[in-house]
């Protein structure tokens, strides 16, 4: 049983991590992340990079949907803005990688601010549907603004290059993506210790009350949209460096649903939730592939793989909403508590 986390100061109470045990686990996690690329093969590194990108984007969506309570089905389109910005900068100006990623984030942020404008007048489902409208309009722009986006065939992106090192393998990209994602996650975690973050939560819980308390709704809702799209934009930029080709068909509506599903499954409104959800949803198709491969079915078992995957995807969304609305992070918390209280209570 773990005891003795008595808090003796406000600073301690507000700290992200409050006990030695947590720091110890964090250190282990850090070592694991550092060591992982040296033991994993290209396939696992590929998945690790993909997970990093998805965590960044899911965390962004979580700021908007989980913390501010504004549902968006436009996350993939914002990633598209980021990806196209990075691709265009890389192709037309050849500017440094980190600058491109930042630019991707900022352009996506501008897009987010515009799309967020209706959020003062409409909310809830109407807002969700207006973000679908935004995705349709953006898809049209991607497909038809030939001089910048290259139309339907899209833009091919050169590998990221920093100080003469070309980031062209998953091994190298890992060292670029994972630190960026970690910084973004820590940034999000800290956001909710500030006035802004708390304002978001107040808006989510009851926006009219928040307004009465002196929180300017439009400004904070737009800020939330902007931040969320910034995250999406950077994630989209990483996506562009990762897949190296950006086309209008790269960011379908289904991808937006994927991110929403990830934060639902992981647990809305918690940092850990977005992380767990993104990891889980990214790994499910690969895990299913293995499981279907093991099943004692005929050799053509793979033929049912895609429909099964689609069903599982839907069933996860429905199942978590019905049976575990707080998501994976709640399960995780329960496991942790079990060990904290062991052996006195189970």
């Amino acid at each position: 049983m773990r005891i003795g986390t008595a808090r003796s100061s406000y600073r301690h109470d507000e700290a992200l991590f409050d006990s030695r045990t947590q720091y110890a686990w964090l250190a282990i996690l850090g070592v694991a992340l550092l060591g992982f690329p040296f033991v994993a093969d290209e396939y696992w590194l590929y998945l690790a990079c993909l997970v990093a990108i998805n965590i960044a984007s899911a965390t962004g969506l979580n700021i908007l949907t989980g913390y501010t309570g504004l549902v968006s089905l436009g996350q993939a389109a914002f990633m598209g803005i980021g990806a196209y910005t990075v691709a265009a900068f890389e192709q037309k100006f050849g500017t440094p990688v980190l600058l491109n990623l930042l630019a991707g984030g900022f352009v996506a942020m501008l897009g987010g601010l515009v799309v967020g404008l209706p959020s003062l007048r409409v909310k809830g489902l109407y807002l969700a549907i207006s973000t679908i409208a935004a995705s349709v309009v953006l898809h049209f722009v991607f497909a038809n603004w030939h001089s910048v986006t290259g139309g339907h065939s899209g833009i091919t992106v050169a590998p990221a290059e920093i100080l003469g090192i070309s980031f062209d393998t998953s091994f190298r990209l890992y060292w670029l993506f994972v630190p960026i994602t970690i910084m973004m996650v820590i940034g999000a975690a800290n956001l909710f210790r500030t006035r802004i973050g708390r304002a978001f939560i107040a808006i989510r819980d009851r926006d009219i009350s928040a307004e009465v308390l002196g929180i300017p709704l439009l400004r904070y809702k737009l800020l939330s949209f902007g931040l969320s799209s910034f995250y999406a934009g950077v994630a989209g930029g990483m996506w562009a460096y990762f897949f190296r080709v950006v086309t209008p068909e790269s960011f379908p509506l289904l991808m937006s649903i994927f991110f929403l599903a990830a934060i639902i499954v992981g647990g809305m409104g918690t940092i850990l939730g977005a992380i767990l959800g993104a990891i889980f949803m990214t790994m499910v198709p690969e895990a299913l592939k293995l499981i279907v491969g093991w099943l004692p079915l005929s050799t053509d078992a793979t033929l049912i793989l895609s429909p099964v995957r689609t069903i599982v995807f839907g069933a996860l969304i429905v199942g978590f909403l019905v049976f575990e609305p707080l998501g994976l992070q709640e399960i995780w918390r329960r496991i942790r508590r079990f060990f904290h209280l062991w052996p006195f209570r189970a």
Partner: peptide, 21 residues
């Protein structure tokens, strides 16, 4: 309402999967 809305999104995916199966 948003949670229920997402349930229907999930249902849509399940129905597509069943048809493909």
């Amino acid at each position: 309402p948003i949670a229920v809305f997402m349930v229907t999104v999930g249902l849509a995916s399940i129905l597509v999967g069943v048809v493909e199966l």
